[in-house]
Nucleic acid binder design. Structure first.
Length: 430
RNA sequence: GGAGAGGUGGCCGAGUGGUCGAAGGCGACCGCCUGCUAAGCGGUUUCCCGCCAAAAGCGGGACGUGGGUUCGAAUCCCACCCUCUCCGCCA
């Protein structure tokens, strides 16, 4: 949610921002005008309602005085009743205007940071930096799903049988590999990067989904349990960011850095295609997520270190990757700035997104009412950031793709060996 | 799931229709006092919205949430949510 005051004073800049994000000029203008108008209306109504209320309050206390003295108050009571009649209608209008205003405000995306490059689509995302070199195997590597099936560690057929397509079962060393990656990443972020481990709930309520921005706009992407009105989380970002919903944190305790493992559930309605084979786009996958709560003035510095913390995982796994800065046209709805980390897949000679690291500034904090305070100063909205550190399924994809050998076996990266119960190589099943 | 109790400020806790945003206490903060610490004394201490460029100031709202009754609701009524205790069930 953007700052309401910016709407009043900076409407033209917001329209320009929307255009940079890829909105048609008319669409952008309408969106902003809608919000501005409801804001005006709501403020006018507020003044009216407050004035009447103020009168009624005064009369009420006069009535109290009369009654205590045992005198007659019918005159005042009648007057107050008359005022109250108008009030109901006005209050109803005010409530409506506020709702419309909020709706309009929620449909305006975050303002990109000044350092975000302009562009139309992912084609225009500049490479921020890269690490490692493209491996050059002397054979044609297989794609991860083929290797996974040959090794007997990934079972797509049975995933579909017991659940539905888009679900996968891991067997034996494959299951162990997922677990090893989760533990490796959690340990790294806790012991070396100073994050506090959180094991959140995997179901959350409506307020939480609204707080981080999944609702109301993206409801159809989530699994919902109507009997209890709970949602399966699409990412640990939701429960972890909402930990501090409606709280005011002492600035002394910032930044707060949390790391959480969770499975992630996404309906992925209508997103099947060439790049979704195997583990790449699943209805359920594991992820280790990093979340930060920071003071406003620190958030961009914290974004850089958050990015570095995520990159460190790939470095230790010895996987070549690059970091791209999302351009204005590709930036997510609530983000002010996002870096994607893309890991290299030799089998396709392509880069695959494995982490997305974002600064939301106060956009989520406003929705979720997460604030901070220095000493006795007034509370202010803090900044939230998050990033995958990393997506486990896609890390398995990258390992199978990069570490496979000519004979069909797959080496385990050195950093993972301590977590693999003595397994150093995945051998094909017989 | 059944029965009962209860949800009030950072915390504890009073308050059952009329200056109650809320007594009292604890904590915190600021002064004073004091070799230091503790104690003591005095004061301060919720948040949201609006008017205003902003501050000050003023007005409105919030006692789990949403409705209702009333001139007036923390207090009465209804629904929902949550917590606790006991029973049942169970990893």
């Amino acid at each position: 949610m953007i700052e309401p005051r910016k709407l009043r004073t900076d409407a033209e800049n917001i329209v320009e921002m929307l255009i940079k994000r890829g909105y048609e000029e008319k669409e952008a203008r309408d969106l902003v005008n809608e919000a501005v108008q409801w804001d005006q209306k709501r403020r006018n109504l507020q003044v009216e309602v407050d004035t009447i209320r103020s009168r009624i309050n005064r009369i009420s206390s006069d009535i109290a005085v009369l009654k205590r003295k045992g005198e007659d108050a019918t005159q005042l009571i009648r007057e107050s009743q008359k005022l109250g009649n108008n009030l109901k209608k006005l209050e109803e209008n005010l409530r409506k205007a506020e709702e419309k205003f909020r709706e309009a405000l929620l449909s305006i995306p975050n303002i990109p940071h000044s350092s975000v490059p302009e562009g139309q689509s992912s084609e225009d995302n500049p490479v921020y930096r890269a690490w490692g070199k493209k491996p050059e195997p002397d054979f044609q590597p297989l794609q991860h799903d083929e290797i996974g099936e040959k090794l007997g560690i990934l079972d797509f057929k049975r995933g579909a049988k017991i659940a539905s397509s888009g679900f996968t079962v891991c067997w034996g060393a494959g299951a162990l590999l997922e677990r090893a990656l989760i533990n490796f990443m959690l340990d790294l972020h806790v012991k070396e990067h100073g994050y506090t481990e959180v094991l959140p709930t995997f179901l959350v309520n409506r307020d939480s989904m609204t707080g981080t921005g999944q609702l109301p706009k993206f409801g159809e992407d989530m699994y919902h349990i109507p009997e209890d009105n709970l949602y399966l989380i699409p990412t640990a970002e939701v429960p972890v960011t909402n930990l501090h919903r409606d709280e005011i944190l002492d600035e002394e305790t910032l930044p707060r850095k949390y790391v959480a493992y969770s499975p992630c559930f996404r309906r992925e309605a209508g997103s099947y295609g060439a790049h979704t084979r195997g583990l790449i786009r699943q209805h359920q996958f594991n992820k280790v997520e990093l979340v930060k709560f920071t003071r406003p003035e620190d958030s961009y510095q914290e974004l850089e270190t958050l990015l570095e913390d995520a990159e460190d995982v790939l470095k230790r796994l010895g996987l070549h990757y690059r970091v791209v800065t999302l351009c204005t046209g590709d930036l997510g709805f609530s983000a002010a700035k996002t870096y994607d980390i893309e890991v290299y897949l030799p089998s396709r000679d392509e880069y695959l997104e494995i982490s997305s690291v974002s600064n939301f500034e106060d956009y989520q904090a406003r929705r979720a009412m997460i604030r901070c305070r220095a000493g006795r100063n007034k509370p202010r909205y803090l900044h939230t950031l998050n990033g995958s550190g990393l997506a486990i399924g896609r890390t398995v994809v990258a390992i199978l793709d990069n570490y496979q050998q000519k004979d069909g076996s797959v080496k385990i990266p050195d950093a993972l060996i301590p977590y693999m119960n003595g397994i150093e190589v995945l051998e094909p099943a017989r």
